[in-house]
Amino acid sequence: MKKVEIFDPAMCCSTGVCGPSVDPELSRVASAIYSLEKKGFDIKRYQLTNDPGKFAENIEVNNVLHEKGPDALPIILVDNQVVRVGSYPSNEEFAEWFNVTPDELTEKPKVRVSIDINSLK
């Protein structure tokens, strides 16, 4: 099974899908990652703000950052090899790496909200 690691630039939250104007590309990537994680695939996402150690300890990522600077982010690794620099993979690429169909990568996370009406009194 393939291992995919995504090294994101610094963002306001873990997915970048927050704030007043959501980037549709980040939303698409978050949905694809969510769907792949739910299926048990080995896909990890690291953010410069929250996981600086992951960036520092990965030689491949370090080399790209030293060569091209932080504008090279995101950096995508498949089986520890850099396969993409400066942009996110398409759903077709994710599907090819994990042997699924692109349609399987569009599931949105479902958030359950529970309200105790008695506590509102």
Rank of each mutant, 00 (worst) to 15 (best):
K3T: 15
V4K: 13
V4G: 00
E5P: 10
I6S: 06
I6H: 10
I6W: 02
I6F: 09
I6G: 06
F7W: 08
D8V: 08
D8F: 07
A10D: 07
M11G: 02
C12L: 07
C12H: 00
C13T: 01
S14F: 08
S14H: 08
S14N: 01
S14E: 07
S14G: 03
T15P: 03
V17M: 13
V17K: 05
G19Y: 15
P20I: 11
S21L: 03
S21T: 14
V22C: 00
P24Y: 11
E25G: 09
L26A: 04
L26V: 03
S27C: 05
S27N: 08
S31T: 05
S31V: 07
A32I: 14
A32K: 13
A32P: 06
I33Q: 04
Y34I: 11
S35P: 08
S35V: 00
S35L: 02
S35N: 14
E37Y: 00
K38V: 07
F41T: 05
D42M: 05
I43W: 08
I43Y: 04
I43A: 05
K44I: 04
R45E: 09
Y46I: 00
Q47C: 06
Q47T: 15
L48H: 02
N50F: 07
D51V: 06
P52I: 12
G53S: 12
G53T: 13
K54R: 12
K54L: 09
F55W: 03
F55E: 12
F55T: 14
N58I: 00
E60S: 07
E60Q: 14
E60D: 09
V61C: 11
N63F: 01
N63Y: 02
V64H: 01
H66L: 04
H66I: 10
H66N: 11
H66F: 10
H66P: 01
E67I: 00
K68G: 02
K68C: 06
G69K: 08
P70S: 10
D71H: 06
D71T: 08
D71N: 05
A72F: 10
A72V: 06
L73E: 01
P74S: 02
I75Q: 04
L77M: 12
L77W: 00
V78M: 05
V78H: 09
D79K: 04
N80Q: 15
Q81L: 10
Q81P: 08
Q81N: 07
V82L: 10
V82R: 09
V82P: 08
V82Y: 04
V82G: 07
R84K: 15
R84S: 13
V85P: 08
G86P: 02
S87V: 08
S87R: 15
Y88K: 13
P89V: 15
P89S: 07
P89A: 09
